[in-house]
Amino acid sequence: MSGIRHHISEGLLASYVAGSLPKPFSLVVAAHVSLCETCRASIAAHEAVGGAILDDFEPIDVGDALRDRVLAQLNDEVSPEPVYTARGPLPAPVVEALAGKEPKWRSLGPGAKQCILSDDAQGSLRLLSIEPGMEMPDHGHGGLEMTLVLQGAFTDETGRFGRGDCEVANDDVEHTPIAAAGEVCICLAATDAPLKFNSILPRLFQPFFRI
């Protein structure tokens, strides 16, 4: 996959490898890496640092019992874990988050709908589907927000984002993404705080639609 111009920062990739990211964000990273060779290579490089650290650890004896237990299980038949693959615009980790099912879309008003994948103490993760030319409501952020484009494109004050591009926004950003002409724009969006909307109508919708 080429043409991706907006990647994920080294700090976030390292956090992903270390397992420090809340699940909604690690799912966005996994989805981006499924589409992006550049970041896949970065992840492997960070894993190599982890490997160097592992290699450096003072060995602590594990005992023969554990060793024997492992060796005894090498021939066990294990039922393989389900392997998910990409479906249409949705990368494998998203298909897995949907448990292989089709997304259940809920309207957000004219030209916009969403499918909430998770919403809990770790943050929220959703698919958004926006008709070309439609604006996503103007909003600021309570924390970190990652938006990965899976189909179509959107533009905002910071640039144009097409398939595979990932926008990372922080508290200090206020932006107005608009879906570009062409295909319906489908995004995977993760936040660690509820989004705050600046116009009155979406704010009324907020508790109801959970955006």
Partner: peptide, 11 residues
């Protein structure tokens, strides 16, 4: 070609 053994096991 794409992974270091220790890194792969670390992950």
């Amino acid at each position: 070609e794409r992974a270091d053994v220790a890194g792969w096991i670390f992950q």
